[in-house]
Amino acid sequence: MTEPLLSVRDLSKHYASHGTRLTILKDISFDIGKGEVVGLVGESGSGKTTIGRSVLRLVEPSAGNVRFDGVELTGLSPSAMRRMRPRMQYIFQDPFASLSPRMTIGEILTEGLKIQRIGTRAERMERARIALEQVDLPAEAINRYAHEFSGGQRQRIGIARALTLTPELIVADEPVSALDVSIQAQVINLLRDLQQQLGLTMLFISHDLAVVEYICDRVIVLYLGRIMEIAASGDLYARPQHPYTRALLSAIPSTDVGAKRERQVLKGEIPSPANPPSGCVFRTRCPHAIEACGQAAPELREVAPGHFKACIRDDIPLGAMP
């Protein structure tokens, strides 16, 4: 991997609710190299969005360290963090709620530039026009309002808003989950093209493993706020090492008509963060759990070059995915 642009170490996030401590994230560590796209996958409630917002300090981590291009972000003063913001941008999940209905598209796209005091008004509007062109929207959209656009077009506007500040890192939080299936592929292809053209580094959050396989170089599998597995995309999809990863992948429809894939249905619901299981947090739903799984949380360890898993067992016959 190239030198990390983003380095996260032992990131944790806790909330207090009615006298109970909710552990949303615990000891999350990973790197993202410059120009790399890393996928973050897991069921709803696994903590994916909290990681995305924590690394940009949109929410404050409870513990741990986040370094961006060698700069320690945790602990930066508000003014120092504000100066870092143009280099790190966020694409929100909901293209309807994330755009103000009272602002023109030009005002939406130039708001960040204005806050950062970048350029004159004319220069900011020119940047907005360039960003619209980059996402394949006409320049005249700059004087219109968000309600005049479809969901897919609104998400393109959200992407353009991030691009106006010429960021190096983008956190894309479920960027197509709110869109019609017919539009999702268009937006995913746009993001992939922009990443390649601009050399963007991206943390791509999704529950859709087929989309993640298409766009990501590496994948992080998350369960109940803990990392279960990290591997290169091709390796993870061909040779998943963790029972949870294998269960997730078994649910992806196969494009091979003749292939037979055994569906592995997880029993029960994801546990509450207020009362996580002892030891391995996945053990209450794992078909391969043994008594030792409840005694200590497994460490994330390298089981093949660049392939890491958090599981004490090496004797599970996972085999290769069909």
Rank of each mutant, 00 (worst) to 15 (best):
E133W: 00
Q134E: 15
Q134T: 08
V135S: 10
V135G: 08
L137C: 10
L137V: 06
P138C: 08
A139L: 08
E140F: 13
A141Q: 02
N143G: 14
N143M: 09
R144G: 05
R144K: 15
Y145F: 14
Y145E: 06
Y145S: 12
H147W: 03
H147N: 06
S150Y: 03
G151T: 01
R154T: 11
Q155M: 09
Q155N: 14
Q155S: 08
R156Y: 05
G158N: 07
G158S: 06
G158W: 03
I159R: 09
I159W: 03
R161F: 00
A162Q: 12
A162S: 15
L163M: 13
L163Q: 05
L163E: 00
T164P: 14
T164M: 13
T164N: 03
T164C: 15
L165N: 10
T166I: 00
E168K: 15
E168Y: 00
L169F: 07
V171F: 00
V171C: 09
V171W: 01
D173G: 12
D173P: 08
D173T: 05
E174H: 13
E174R: 13
E174P: 15
P175N: 12
V176A: 06
S177W: 11
L179P: 00
D180S: 05
V181C: 12
I183Y: 05
I183F: 06
Q184D: 11
Q184H: 11
A185Y: 01
A185D: 10
A185R: 14
A185W: 04
Q186H: 13
V187S: 10
V187H: 03
V187T: 05
V187C: 09
N189V: 12
L190N: 10
L190S: 13
L190P: 02
L191V: 12
L191Y: 02
R192P: 00
R192F: 03
D193M: 13
Q196A: 15
Q196R: 15
Q197P: 03
L198R: 10
G199D: 13
L203W: 04
F204C: 11
F204V: 09
I205V: 15
I205M: 12
S206L: 06
S206Y: 04
S206Q: 08
A210M: 05
A210F: 07
A210V: 07
V212I: 11
